[in-house]
Design a protein around this nucleic acid. Structure first.
Lengths: 202, 202, 202, 202
DNA sequence: AAGTAAACGAGACGGTACGTCGTGTCTTCCG
DNA sequence: CGGAAGACACGACGTACCGTCTCGTTTACTT
């Protein structure tokens, strides 16, 4: 789809226009007042052109938002603590952004009736950043910055959950201090993996 | 509103019928396919009767769900650890329930365009349970089960965030083992309150 | 409206279906029980499709009725008296028909609050037939069947008024005898044009 | 209904207030925008109080209008021509009044689905004035001002029809000159009664 | 004077229809 | 011949009235 030869250059323009118009109107109107017809009109595009590429409003918005989100920095800079802070700051940037606040709940809501959307939502927004983050935390275990039995997945879900929870319900900004405190507390004593049915020693 | 003079008092039967019909249809149809008109028809009620008491679908569903949610047990049973486990299990029951999964994201989404709904959502669903939980955790601090500088609010938000995150995106069941592990890890080394700008010692 | 560029042209089938369904339901239900929603459902058409072409029920019914009404015969058949009888019979057919009885009063009533409807009603239902009738009566003046100062407009309004009045309030059938008597009486001594303020000699 | 024992008798003030409020609002809003609820509120009266006395909006308006209409003068003043002009002027006042223009068509329209209303409408508005008028025209026959075989009923229906027709569709004022001309033309050569099936000689 | 019962204002109730909007599909015509 | 323009069937929205009903309250007659 990106290597078409000689094809209609206009297609890409249209696609681009649709996505950027979507983001712009999303900011202005919010998700619920956003309509496919409105986007089509604003982007000077036929509605059918949108439906040709996206099944519904949710899929379109998911695509539009996805490309705007920053990647998690996975580069090895020698200091695991600093790497982890960078990871957490990126997560905070994602989960604390006004756009994600506007969109994520709506997508989750729509996903309840659309399993395919649910899968794409999890894979493209959540799991992708999580996999990148896991790389950094696993390296921290190798270096001894985190204990060998640290439950990396739970750590990350807990961070994301806390960030999302506070962003959605309290609208607080997730500032640098919040992130550093969160990382510090976790590094000090992360949740450990447990064998089912067996209580870990504390 | 309750002491108006003259006129036919609000028919409590109708109110009851609306709320229970709402819950029943919510389970069958999900939030997005739920419609005010459908509820009215099913409950043998005029649409106006619904709109007289609730501004929109979200407010109605919020009311219907609210009364179904369990309260957090705050009773002093002597053992703070068991009390905390009970708290966490109730939170898991709330945030892990299929109904909440169906509804919460939709309400949060609608709340983005309706500040009054946002406030009611936070106050009646989130803050109320949180206040009850805080009572138990504060008692644990008094007893020494938790250190004096434990950041109770963050502990609770982290728990709720983790539960909600996993429920929404992974659809996992929040079983007893999960809850006990979560509590254990937190009791072992909870996040501490920090003075802004000052790094806590780890 | 007919030369718009692009887009799906107004579906003439739908238009046709709407008008015929309107006439059919009008006969069954009468004007007041007729509803736009009901017509839409029966014609397998969206309500919006009706509202796209007609501003309200009255405009729709006016259109539906208009095309069903017979034209006044204006052909020169040599005998003015017979021509006039034919004119009067057509007027009687119009003003005496059950459909017109059902519709005209309702349209007039609605027209009280809708000047545009009032104009269309007069132009398309009343004036058009009247203009045709005037042609025949003017020819009768030329031929000497009517006196040169016969007040053609008043004659026609009096006929229409009488027919409508009896149809609306007495529900009588306007049969052939009634029409011939009416024409005879009028031919014998029609109302004359008068100069304002000047009494005609009787 | 008049010998009920005990309790609060029908509040005649209320009845009066309802009728006058109806007339006032009718002038302001027109018939279609007039609502029972609106009248009740404006007259500081419960809706049930209105429904207790009138079956529907049409019956209420009919009552309100009826009492406002002038009676036809039937007094013998010696000169039949002047008497007839007075009759015609009263009819013109009735059929040409803005209120009747507003109301009559609406009532006729509603009457199509309500035979009882239809009867009351004809009896109380039409026939009553007509009977009074017939007295005057019959006297004119006795005096020789009109020929013995003049069809009095048709004369009156023709007048009323013409007046109503012009009032409804052309909104013209029915001035004194119009009335005198109409009477003159009719006196000169009124429609005659005919035996059914037999052509009258002209 | 106290008791009582109908009629009252108010307005909530179950409904019906309104006119608007958004959806996702389909058709027509332009460049 | 691909795409904008937008008409289409559908169905939910939130509003306005309808005509019925159920409340307390206010009389005016009865005892």
């Amino acid at each position: 789809m990106s290597d078409e030869r000689g094809g209609h250059r206009r297609d890409l323009d249209a696609r681009e226009r649709i996505l950027s118009t979507t983001m712009r109107m999303l900011g202005v109107l919010g998700y619920s007042r956003l309509s496919i017809g409105g986007i089509a009109q604003e982007a000077a595009v036929g509605k059918a052109t949108i439906y040709r590429s996206w099944a519904n409003k949710a899929a379109l918005v998911l695509d539009a938002v996805r490309v705007q989100l920053p990647d998690v920095p996975v580069a090895d800079i020698g200091d695991s603590e600093e790497e982890i802070v960078a990871v957490a700051e990126t997560l905070a940037e994602i989960y604390g952004s006004p756009t994600v606040r506007l969109v994520l709940s709506a997508l989750v809501s729509d996903a309840a009736a659309d399993p395919e959307l649910a899968q794409r939502l999890r894979e493209e927004l959540i799991d992708q950043r999580k996999k990148q983050s896991v790389v950094v935390l696993d390296r921290a275990i190798d270096r001894g910055t985190l204990p060998p039995d640290a439950d990396v997945s739970t750590v990350l879900d807990m961070w994301a959950g806390l960030m999302l929870f506070r962003s959605l319900f309290y609208g607080v900004s997730l500032d640098e201090q919040f992130v550093r405190d969160l990382v510090s507390a976790t590094l000090g004593s992360p949740p450990r993996t447990t064998t089912r049915g067996e209580r870990p020693e504390t």
